[in-house]
Design a protein around this nucleic acid. Structure first.
Lengths: 120, 120
DNA sequence: TATATAAAGGACAAATTCATCCTATTTAAC
DNA sequence: GTTAAATAGGATGAATTTGTCCTTTATATA
């Protein structure tokens, strides 16, 4: 259980802004929260086990990454492609694969070992 | 030689905004312009032969795509990586490769054949 | 040379994203 | 029960991106 101030400090992000993001995640059920003294945010063990970056990105930004055309066309598909549709679809697939395979519980390991950082 | 109105129409973008983008490209030398009656924008044959999307993206948006950390850290490198640095670097390399290999003169071929579209 | 046409560029306006502030609500502990 | 600590959420403000408008400058052509 961590409070907003500690989380904001740990990631080098403004407290109020961090709070809004955490609220969004809590509303979507990706994290849990408790009000009041000794309250804060935490992740259910069961949730954490399946939590990947794709779920988080979708919760905050929607599915734009997986849906949007690189050139911004509203209708861009295999049938009606923009000039870079066929090239970009592989990039997009790679991003989705990467986000799906990035499990939060794994990412934390390197952070704990100080092999990766959350702010600078 | 095409004027701003025709270009804006062809890509479904506001005329004034399109003009600003074209001006930026002209200042960087990626396209050429001529003022006055019968004026407009065009690309030198020699420039076109080597013009790829990477050059254009860099001219308009800077080198953020190739430089920026996925998580927004200012300092994110092999030595000091964010939690997804090692996963994202492959995506990033793919994007750069794709942009570098996308030659404008090739992309126009499919557009001319109506195999791809610039607006909808 | 006069006129019409088109880009150049500065100033401004709108929309979106990013971020803050304040009040209400909930909870722990005394 | 009172108090202190913490999230929830609405309203607001700042910054950035996106887009517009208007005047100036340059060019072709009659």
């Amino acid at each position: 259980m961590s409070n907003v101030r500690d989380i904001a400090e740990a990631i080098g992000s403004p407290v109020a802004f961090t709070a809004k993001v955490l609220q969004q995640l809590a509303r979507k059920g990706l994290i849990s929260s408790m009000k009041g003294a000794k309250g804060g945010f935490y992740i259910e063990a069961k949730t954490l086990r399946h939590l990947n970056l794709c779920t988080i990105v979708n919760a905050i930004d929607g599915n734009g990454i997986t849906e949007n055309c690189m050139l911004g066309l509203r209708e861009c598909s295999e049938k009606n492609p923009c000039p870079v549709h066929h090239q970009y679809k592989h990039i997009k697939a790679g991003i989705i694969k990467m986000l799906n395979e990035s499990m939060v519980n794994n990412l934390t390991i390197d952070v704990e070992k100080k092999l990766s950082v959350l702010k600078n």
